[in-house]
Every structure is written in C-alpha cells, then in structure tokens.
Design a protein around this nucleic acid. Structure first.
Lengths: 205, 205, 205, 205
DNA sequence: AATGAATGAGGTTTCATTCAT
DNA sequence: GATGAATGAAACCTCATTCAT
C-alpha cells in the first residue's frame, strides 16, 4: 500500500524530468513543472531550495543509483570486460526505460554552474574512478592494454556512449536512415570500446 | 593589408567566445559581449539577428573550417588510420590554440535549441558523414573492422575526444593529479580509438 | 497559580516582539514568530486575524497599560510638573525593562497602515489628550506657559522622548562616544521638557 | 532652456516620492512609480540599483540639501537662538512645499535597513552634529543652559518637530478640531524649544 | 486546540531587443 | 554605421493565509 504513495518530492522530480526533457532547463518554467505535477506553484520551494536545486537533485539521485549499480556489478562479476559490458548495458537500459531522464542528464545537468561545485563533482568523479579501477584490473590481469590511462579510458568510454545516445535523442533521422536500432548501436559500442581497451596483436608489438 | 583589419563581426564573435566560455551562454549578457568587444550596446544587432545567432555563427564559422580541414586531410593522406589520427590531432590543436572556442563548441552550442534546426544540423551531419566515409574506406581496404557501423564509429570517436577535452576544461584537477598532460591524452586517445577501429586477432575470429 | 501559566496568545506576542525588534515588521515572517514561540506554523491564525493584527495587538496591549499608568499618575500626584516627570520616567523604565518592545512601538507600529485606522487612533489620541490635560492643569495653576498649545506640547514631549530612545536603539555609538548614559539622558530630557513648559522670566514678558 | 529639462533620474525620484507618500514604501510597487513617471518599467533599474536605492537616494538628496542649508544658516546668522529658529522654519517650509517628501522622510526612510548602513548614517549624524554645535555655541555664549547635552538637545529638537509634522500628516483631525494651523504650530514649537534650551530664572538657581 | 503541508497571488529584477538620434 | 537610452515581457521566489488531519 505504502509503495503506491509517491512522495511529493518524487512527484516534483518526475514532472521536472518530463518538462526539462521537453524544453530544456532554461526553457522550462517552474510553473510548467508544478502544472505537470498537478500541485501548487509554491510547493516546489518547500521541497527544493531553488529551480537549480531540482536539477541537481535529479543528477544526484540518478548518479547515486549509478554508483551503486557499478558497485554491484563489481561484486557480481569478475571479468573486467564483462564489467564494462554490464555498465554500458546499464546505461542503455536506463535510456530505454527513461529517455527523458537521460536527456536531462546529458544536456541540462552539465550546463548548470552548481554541477561544478564540490558536492556534485565529488559524486561525478567517484563514478569515473570506479570505472577507471575496472580498467586497471583488466590491465593487471593482462587483458587490457597497459598503454591506456585508466581514467582517460573511463572518460572516453562514457563520452562515446553519451555521444551515441545523444544522437538517438536529438538526431535520430541519421540513424534511422541507416537502420541502426538502439540495441544494435549498443552492441557496436560494446564491441568497439571493449576492443579499444583490449590487448591486440598490434599493441602486443 | 585588408587582412590586418578585423571586421566588426569578427570582433563581436571573438568577444562572444571569450564571454560564453567564461559564464556560459545563458550566463552571458549581450552587454557583456559588447563591453568585451569595446563597442556600443546595440551594435550586435546590426551584425546578428539575435544572441542565439551569435552562438550559431560561432559554430558555423568553426565547423565550416573543420569540414574543409577534413576534406584537405582526405586529399593529402591516403591511409584511413592516418586520416583519423590527423583529425584527432586537429581537434586537439584547435583546443590548444583556442580553448575558449572549444569550450563554447562543446558546452554551449549543443545545448542551444537553434542548433537542432535544419540549418545547423546539416553542417553537423556533413562532418560526421565525412568521418564515417573515412571509416568505410578503412573497412573496404581491410584495415578496419567491418562490424562497426561507420557513422556510429564517427560519433564515438567524437564523443570520446569531446569527453576528454571537457575534462581538461571543467575538471582539470583529476587529470593533473594523475599527471596526464594534454598531449599525453591526445596520444592515448589516438591509440585507443584507432585500435578500436582496427581489425585485431580477436575480431578476426 | 494561573499567573504562572502564560497563555498561548501572550507567548505569540512575546515572540513577535523579539522578532519584530530584530528584523522589523516587514523583515519578519510569521514562521519566524512561531519558530521563536515554539509553536506550530498555522497557530498564529487561531489567535490573531493576521500578521498586522499581531502588531496592532502589541500596540493596544501596551498603550492600554500606558493609559492606565497615566491615569494612576494623575490620581497619585498633584503637581503637573511631577506628573510629566513621572510619565517620562515611566517611558524610560519601560524601555529599560523591554527595549525590544519599545523598538517595535517606535519603529514598527507607527509605520503600519492599520495603525491609522479608527480603532487604534482612538487609543493613541486618548493618551495624548490625557497628557495635554496635564499640561492644561499646569497652565491653569500658573505653572506652565499659557502660550503653548497643550496638545502640541504633548506631541512634542513624546516626540522628543521617542527620538532619544530611537538614538539609543539604532545609533548608540554617537551617544556612547559622548558617554551619555540612558539615565543621564532621561534626566536631561526631563529638565529640558519641563523647563520648556514652564513659565520663565522670558516668557513672562 | 536646459533648466526646463528634468533629468530622468529626477523624474523617477519625484514620482517615487509621490507614490511612497501615498502607499508607503512597502505598499508601493516599482510599476506604480514608473506609471506615475510615465516611463517604461525597467528604466528605474538603469538609474537605480534597486527599489531600496530609490528611497535612499531620496533621503540623501534631501539631507545633503538640509546639511547645506544648516551650513548657510550658520554662516549668515550669529545668534544661536536665531539659528535654531531658522532651522525649524526651514523644516516647516520644506514640509509646506513638499509634504509628500516629508512624509517619506519621516515614515519610510527609517524603516529601511539600508538607512542604518555606514553611508546614510554618516550623513544623518553629520546633521545632528551641526545642530549640536549650534547648541554648544549658545552655551558658550551664556545664552543656553549648560546642563543640556548638545547632542541630546539636537535629537530632542528634531524629535519634537518631526512629531508635530507627523500629526499634521497622519492625524490632522485632532489638530483641526483645536484650530491649530501649521504656522501656529511652528511658532509654538519654536517658542517651546528655544525656551527649553534657554537659561531661565529657574535654571539659573 | 494544534499541526504543518499546500496554496497562489504578487512583486522585484533581469535582459534581449528596439529605436531615436 | 554607431550609440546607448528606453522598452516591457518574463520568471523566480517569497510568504501570508488556508485547510485537511
């Protein structure tokens, strides 16, 4: 029973994601959010300090889950390749389940000054460190190319994944034209990136 | 002689880059730009339709050059690996020469509604098509893995490069901590991406 | 026994005085008052019609006491000079006992629209009439200068006293610099004002 | 010709005085001011930092003139009694010429936090020091009672004058009832206050 | 009586754009 | 072309008041 009751905070956050995804953060009015949520204008300010705060909360809520997911993947799997594959799959799954959320995370969050403050950057960096650690494990195990800086690898992995998703969100025609489905794309990316990390005959030279 | 005279339009564009880089597009006022340029408040509107238009002009100016550069690389080099290497080097060189410009291109341009209108997307897509064509050449020559969609490869390449540059711009401490210089990073990326594209013993199976 | 129980109304009033004194009427939120009083947000509205009403109640509570005090002074003393002296002493004593209250009475009450409505002005004017009557008595007894309008005298007396207290409240450094204590000031004022009313060689001309 | 052109700043200030006098500072909207001035909404913010700033400017403009007037009185007259008389006359004349202005100065200015900042308090205190100096001169000349602290005298003088004017502004019925005209009042006050300062037979004892 | 979540009107300020000179 | 004063729409946030529990 209690599970059915969505907290007001959650309600606002969900509405904000929908609205931000539609018009972008700067194109969205607080009143759009409250209207979407079916609540009174001022109520947002009982749960959030400001409009900024709503956006940052979306980021933090989501990236905390992401961090936990990575930790879980770390526990459940042992092969670094599988771990990276799992992370990428998770990102794509998140996109399919809530494309609006992903849109907001990719397009709106990084525009916000507050995102670059200590608090959020800490969380942001922690995620990349975790991914870098996985790369490092692969290197130690002799699976991944030792030439690659683990942290740079983590950034590149994310950059590549984000770029693809961004195309699906904002420029889908180019991909439809070529008949590349999102699942297709995901598998390409996994192959490409995992291979990028791997030791090959060439890099063995 | 004429080359020494910077047109007013150019003057405004240069000032805008500096200002947008500093405070972001939404954090910048038109008056900030004119002040930086040392011109009258309203003059921007003689050269540009709107504030949006200024940002889009920066994008178009730059990406037209970028397109030409890729075409030149295409003419001058024949090895697809070398071509991609050259493109990546060009992007990093551009960043080193004008980091503000790159900041604006990565952070502000893609977050502007107008960027997703026909006009700009045409230019944007043309660049990615060119890069995709290079990947295709590599595949036809038996150098690149045929499994990879050329267009996805192009997006990933750019996404990875952008992600790294974004870290240098917004989160440099993490990279300084690890003593990874920008040139270092560039070479890592080149190795990683070019290998990602390449046929390897593994992908040959 | 009942005397020890402070009614909720009283509790709110005391909290309001503290809060209004600190931030001024317009700078104080109803929630500040309830927080200070340690009661629920909405409870103020069970005891008062509005925020205005709280301030007006402070005024009325206090000025009713003040009126009674003046009446008592009128009964207990006979010399008009002594009466005025007593009134001034009472005001200063009130200030010393509850400076916050005086701050509110001097600064907030007279700047509230509602204060100028019939209801409060009646009480306000009754006090000044009482003081004017004392001046009149002095004139009739040949002690006070008949040239002075009693009501104007009453206003001036209060204006002078209020001005001094206001300085102690808002600009105490100027008085500290000159080492004038509040009791000092009180005695000066009494002398000055009582003399102002008195018949002198000059005014006898 | 130039004299006929009122600067925009002046225009706004005049409108603000009218509006503040009518509804009080907190009851006045910036749009009321611009409407009264017949100008665009945002123009206020080209000439003033904020609504606060408009009110403070009124105070500073006026009190700077007041200070100059006192200085002029100081130069032109020699008898301290005459000087005080002149100051009081000046205040009453100001009131008659622009009652709205006086209303604002008495009722709105002292409510404003900014008024208590260094800048405005400096000006405020300088005026009182000047008046105190005149009292001191009178004491040195053997005309004024040495018992009175000059600065307290200055405060009392102003407090008494302000109190009377306030009654004319907000509570005129009480004075009309008693048929006391404003000029009447002025002369009473002058007599009362100047006598308050003077050496009398009584204070000579 | 007590609580505090919910309401929503209202006002300040910002700033892109226009326009008279 | 150049200037910068003028315009006014737009939106965030506050907070007095109400109301369901």
């Amino acid at each position: 029973m209690n599970d059915l009751i969505i907290s007001k905070k959650e309600l606002i956050l969900d509405a904000a994601i929908k609205i931000f995804a539609r018009h972008g953060y700067y194109g969205s009015r607080v009143s759009d959010i409250t209207e979407e949520a079916g609540i009174a204008y001022g109520l947002v300010y009982r749960y959030f300090r400001s409009k900024d705060d709503v956006l940052i909360s979306i980021f933090q809520d989501r990236w905390n889950r992401y961090l936990k997911k990575i930790e879980q993947i770390n526990r459940d799997l042992s092969d670094p390749k599988e771990k990276l594959r799992s992370i990428i799959q998770y990102i794509f799954r998140s996109y399919r389940q809530n494309p609006d959320m992903m849109k907001v995370l990719i397009m709106d969050v990084p525009r916000l000054d507050k995102f670059y403050e200590q608090d959020s950057q800490g969380l942001y960096n922690r995620v990349f460190e975790k991914i870098a650690t996985i790369v490092k494990q692969g290197q130690d195990k002799g699976i991944f190319n030792k030439e690659i800086s683990p942290i740079l690898g983590a950034y590149m992995l994310h950059g590549a994944v984000d770029a693809i998703i961004r195309q699906y969100v904002y420029n889908p025609n180019e991909l439809k034209k070529r008949k590349i489905s999102i699942r297709n794309a995901r598998d390409h990316i996994i192959d490409f990136l995992v291979q990028g990390f791997s030791i090959t005959s060439e890099s063995k030279d």
